[in-house]
């Protein structure tokens, strides 16, 4: 095996993995503040990308203006989802909320299909596709940009969860009733977490939209994002970043080794195996919180 080739696979795998992390951070944000796995994060990411396109390509705004504007719109949408749909379910069994987010995902996919159709569109971020060589290793520029965005968001949210508002969000995830009892507005906190996750969805939507085009398939990122979030431990942002890198490397290197043996298609199998094994062997993931049981 050629070492240059192997490290190229590993580095590009890690970069792709960080793009999964970018997506997974949105999942973690909502889980961290309300203990609900958000199955509509894929739909939100797709909508985020469509809103950017609507503002830039349809309304003619420049991208540097369209992206922040889309972030503001999506921030409002996140709050709106809490206000309209989730508030009624606060305190109900998680399984109902889970079903609601699944329904929301289907709804978002249908809505974008109705408004913008199903043809794939490109974002045209303007990142060059010229190959970039680090020594002998080829890396993709857009992946590098996306990985940088993921790391920047990681640092921003690590700091955020140490602020007073961040601590209140973590308190809500721990115990709704106790939060109400000390005057924390659970509703506003959950709304804020959805709003922030929707902003993350814009970032993920733009980067992934640039890589694979903007269409309904963007929402399928949920599967890999969820795998990363579960492996990292659902409520850990650090976990999402590290798990993203691990999954990216394992997937890229593993597929290269296995594909010649099975004739292709092992990439998806590796992701599935990681998800299933994580849940079986280490249900709280690499860095997730344990439920505390004192003896």
């Amino acid at each position: 095996m050629d070492w240059v080739f192997l490290s190229e696979l590993a580095i590009n795998g890690a970069l792709t993995g960080l793009l999964y992390s970018l997506f997974a951070i949105g999942l973690v944000l909502i889980y961290k503040a309300s203990s609900v796995p958000n199955l509509s994060q894929g739909g939100l990411t797709m909508v985020g990308a469509y809103v950017v396109l609507a503002l830039s390509h349809d309304a003619g705004l420049p991208l540097w203006l369209a992206i922040p504007l889309a972030a503001v719109i999506m921030f409002g949408l996140g709050f709106g989802i809490e206000r309209v749909a989730l508030r009624r379910l606060a305190g109900r069994p998680v399984v109902m909320i889970l079903m609601l987010t699944l329904g929301l995902d289907i709804f978002l996919r249908g809505t974008t299909l109705a408004i913008w159709g199903g043809t794939s569109r490109s974002v045209d971020l303007g990142v060059s596709y010229e190959p970039l060589f680090l020594g002998d290793i080829f890396v993709s520029r857009i992946h590098l940009v996306g990985a940088g965005v993921a790391l920047a968001l990681f640092v921003a949210f690590m700091l955020f969860f140490r602020t007073r508002t961040g601590i209140k969000l973590r308190a809500i995830a721990d115990d709704y009733m106790a939060s109400w009892s000390v005057g924390i507005s659970v509703e506003r906190g959950v709304g804020l977490s959805w709003a922030l996750a929707s902003v993350v969805a814009v970032a993920a939507g733009v980067i992934w939209g640039e890589i694979q085009g903007v269409d309904q398939a963007l929402s399928l990122l949920l599967l890999k994002g969820l795998t990363v979030a579960v492996l990292g431990g659902l409520d850990s942002i650090l976990g999402a970043v590290i798990a993203g890198i691990i999954l990216g490397v394992v997937e890229n290197v593993g597929a290269d080794l296995l594909d010649p043996l099975v004739g292709g298609g092992s990439r998806e199998l590796i992701v599935a195996a990681v998800l299933i094994l994580t849940v079986m062997i280490r249900p709280h993931g690499l860095f997730g919180r344990h439920d505390i049981e004192r003896v």
Binding site: R164, I167, V182
Partner: peptide, 24 residues
């Protein structure tokens, strides 16, 4: 302010953060 039954502290936060979380 109501200290609810069964203590119900925020288990995954530190005591210091528990106090911060309740700040008006």
């Amino acid at each position: 302010c109501h200290v609810i039954e069964g203590r119900r502290v925020f288990e995954h936060l530190t005591p210091d953060e528990n106090l911060t979380a309740a700040a008006p």
